[in-house]
Structure formats: C-alpha cells, structure tokens
C-alpha cells in the first residue's frame, strides 16, 4: 500500500511539473538614446539610462494542480541573466541592471492561501551571463500572475567608451520548484 501511495505521488509530481507552465514577456526591446553633447569639453549629461518602470511585463502561468493540489500553492522562481553580443560591455565600462517594480496581478487563491510574489524589488540587480535569482512567488490553480513590471538600467554611459552598438539579450527563466 505504501508503495502504491509513493508511486501515485511520484506520478502526480511529474505530471504536475510536466504541464505547460509558461512565462511570457511583453515589451521585448529597450534601446534608449543617449543625450547629445552640445558643448565642447563636456561628457554626456548623464551616465545612467533608466527605462520606464514597466518597460517589460512578465506573466507567469503555473501547471494545473490536480486533486488535492488545487488547494495548495505552486511555487516558482524566476531567474535572470544577460547575454551580450557585439561590442564588449565590460571593456566599455557598461553594466545593465533590472528591478521588479510591482507585483502585477492575479495568481489565484484557494481555501488555503492567496498567491504572492517577492524578491527583486528592493534595488537594481546587476545582470551577468549566469542565471541568477530574480524573484519568486506562489500561484494557485492555473490563474496566471500577469503584468509583473520590470525596469532596466544601463550605467557607465560616457564618451570615453568606444563608439559602438552595445546589445544584450536579457533572459528570464521560470522554474517550477
């Protein structure tokens, strides 16, 4: 009997995790313009470029819960990294950061609790080429948490940096854990 129960829970866990949890992003491009130097002798007026607070909006949908799990929370973690291309950001002294500026909405609830979200909103977080914890949350059922606003920032803007196009791909990874 114990073996049967274990097998059921193993299958339940795998079935739950194999369901299509998804992370979607809107606002997928941020290409700010630097200020124009109008007076000889000056650097750019600002060394930091900051996007709108809702530059990108993330939505997180977790797998459908089954049986009793419909009542329990489904925890997720969102990781973040940036993969640079073209001119070297590090050689130019450029860095890119991200911050979660709001909670979005939705995520569901049950008799046992209400969805939540935490992390990533205290300060701008420098992005590297390695997946790094960004924020986490709990959804209930299949109700997605939508419109989680993300803000970006680039620092190190200077005419001392080599003239070039600097580009990066910011990759969010949703982990059903």
């Amino acid at each position: 009997m114990l073996k049967i129960v274990i097998v059921i829970f193993v299958l339940l866990g795998c079935w739950k995790s194999s369901m299509a949890q998804s992370l979607s992003v809107t606002g997928t491009t941020w290409l700010p313009t630097v200020s124009t130097v109008t007076e000889a002798g000056n650097d750019y007026s600002t060394s930091t470029l900051t996007s709108a607070t809702n530059q990108s909006l993330l939505s997180v949908t977790m797998p459908n819960a089954f049986f009793i799990l419909v009542l329990t929370n489904n925890h997720y973690t969102v990781q973040i990294k940036s993969i640079n291309s073209g001119a070297s950001w590090s050689a130019a002294g450029l860095k890119i950061y991200a911050k979660r500026t709001g909670n979005g909405s939705g995520g569901g609830f049950s008799l046992l609790g209400v969805s939540d979200i935490s992390g990533g909103n205290a300060a701008f977080q420098e992005l590297t080429s390695s997946d790094t914890y960004f924020f986490e949350g709990n959804n209930y059922g299949t109700t997605p948490r939508t419109d989680i606003p993300i803000q970006f920032q680039i620092t190190g803007i200077s005419i001392l940096a080599p003239v070039a196009n600097y580009s990066t791909s910011i990759i969010f990874t949703l982990i059903d854990d």
Partner: peptide, 19 residues
Amino acid sequence: MASTCMAQTTGTVTAGVNL
C-alpha cells in the same frame, strides 16, 4: 521528487545602447 521532474521556460528582452 520535484527536482527530478523540474521544468522551466524562458522569455527574452533585447536591450542595448548606441554610443
């Protein structure tokens, strides 16, 4: 159990600046 069945998905944003 969860670790052996963990799944993930990704989303991408392009950012950059022209100096």
